[in-house]
Simulated assay, not measured.
Amino acid sequence: MDNTVKVISLNVNGLNVPEKRRQIVNVMRKGKGDIILLQETHFRNIPQPMHKLGTFSQWYYSNNPEQKTKGVAIAIRKNLNFQLENTLSDPSGRYLLIKGQLYHTPCTIGCVYFPNKNQIPFLNKLKEKITDFANGLCIIGGDLNFPVDPQNDTSKGSSVLPYSKLKIASKSLQSLRLIDTWRFHNPTTKQYTHYSNTQNSYARIDYVFISQHHLHWLKEASIDNILWSDHAAVQIKLNIPNKTPSTWQWRLNESLLEDLDCRKEIIDTIKDYKQNTQTDG
């Protein structure tokens, strides 16, 4: 029985160009994600073009209405049993939190895009929002725009943020009881999600966190290659205990009734069945 739910998080660096939208559609379909977290969508107007993607029936956005920058989105695959209860959106398009029932399990899903400056004050404000809003299983993914552990998460082993601020960030994540899923599964590996031309270095600044209480549901965590976006996608798989496979139900192909030979065969079969049951009686 497959009770897994796959989450994919990616900074797409803008989706207003049709070619970029085709590329992310391929990522979503080939990756077979159930929950998609997108950062830097750069959408401003409503409705957004991603609603045309039928594979994902639920779309939630947080946009920057002033200009085509920032923006995050959460997409839910149409066959995923998620019942929305509430949303919390940043007016400038930096974060989006939704909560509801995932296979009858209380669940909060968040997508975040941190600024490239003043990340720690932003995290502290976000921590308050998550604390007040979140319920049950918590899945938070996105682009933090800084490495939580520079020694292990950058090619240079350093960060522009001083150690004192990184320590505050670490304590904030600990207070939320959020666990870095990729690092949990890869305690000593070095792999990066972004290359910075200005700093001439690689760093792991894209994360998917889950609540510590549900860490035993984590099955896999991986980082893809950096391809058409300047970021790599982060993927995780969760085992959801309440998820059951969809039941198959037989249904008559009604087009067969239009076939005269098929109809005759069905009628003859019914007549034979009636005669046999009468004889047996």
Rank of each mutant, 00 (worst) to 15 (best):
L144Y: 13
P147F: 02
D149S: 02
P150W: 07
P150R: 02
Q151A: 08
Q151P: 00
N152K: 09
D153Q: 14
T154C: 00
G157M: 06
S158H: 08
S159L: 03
P162C: 02
Y163G: 05
S164V: 11
K165G: 00
K167M: 12
K167V: 06
K171H: 10
K171A: 14
S172R: 05
L173M: 15
L173H: 04
I179F: 02
D180E: 02
W182E: 02
W182F: 04
H185A: 09
T188R: 07
T189W: 06
Y195I: 08
Y195V: 04
N200L: 05
N200F: 09
D206R: 03
D206L: 02
V208D: 00
S211Y: 10
H213A: 13
L215R: 07
H216Y: 12
L218M: 14
E220I: 03
S222K: 14
D224I: 00
N225Y: 01
N225A: 12
H231W: 06
A233N: 01
Q235I: 15
I240R: 06
K243Y: 04
P245N: 13
S246N: 12
S246F: 04
T247G: 00
W248G: 10
W248K: 15
W248D: 09
W248N: 06
W248A: 15
N253H: 10
N253E: 11
E254T: 15
E254M: 05
E254C: 09
L260F: 07
C262Y: 15
K264Y: 03
D268K: 12
I270H: 00
K271E: 11
Y273C: 06
K274I: 15
K274D: 07
Q275R: 14
T277F: 05
